[in-house]
């Protein structure tokens, strides 16, 4: 009946948020969600497994804090006069996570934080190419990404 319960629940919530909470829209939204999850099931995507879902709020908190911090950092770089004091560059980070879901979340986190952009993942030697706007020390960024995000993601997804 419901192959993807999380997807169906978020579809119903989205339907109600867009149309207002009434009984009619609740029924209509449930019908739409059920049919949509059947359509999703026929596509057979790999089912993500959330091992420790209770760590997700911690991840969201860390990411929100980092986004605020790097927003300020990037804004001060942009506004910081004409002379270029910062040096940007590419770094390669070896990754241990394997699950596609965790990689996708890591890519979203890295890219939506201003100052770092996820360029491409090399699945052969499992490294990722990241461009950093204010590159001071390559090893520092590697330990930041591995220690701050990757360890938590591996706990959640693997």
């Amino acid at each position: 009946m419901l192959p993807y319960p999380l997807l169906s629940a978020s579809l119903v919530i989205m339907w109600l948020a867009l149309n207002g909470f009434t009984l009619g829209h609740l029924i209509l939204g449930c019908i739409v969600a059920v049919f949509a999850s059947w359509g999703m099931a026929s596509l057979r995507p790999a089912k993500p497994r959330l091992k420790k879902w209770y760590l997700l709020p911690k991840l969201v908190g860390i990411v929100l804090y980092d986004i605020v911090r790097s927003n300020i950092a990037v804004a001060s770089i942009i506004l910081g006069g004409h002379k270029r004091k910062f040096k940007s560059g590419f770094i390669t980070v070896p990754l241990d996570v394997e699950s596609p879901m965790a990689l996708a979340v890591l890519a979203v986190v890295v890219t939506s934080t201003p100052g770092t952009a996820w360029l491409e993942y090399n699945s052969l030697n499992r490294t990722v190419l990241i461009h950093v706007l204010d590159l001071v020390d390559e090893a520092e960024w590697q330990t930041l990404i591995k220690g701050r995000y990757e360890a938590l993601l591996m706990e959640i997804f693997e």
Binding site: N71, V74, S88, F90, S112, P114, G115, A117
Partner: peptide, 16 residues
């Protein structure tokens, strides 16, 4: 100055 640096700038608008 370069494209790979410019790609960081719009994330300011899309995040906060």
């Amino acid at each position: 100055p370069s494209f790979y640096e410019r790609i960081h700038a719009p994330t300011l608008g899309t995040s906060w």
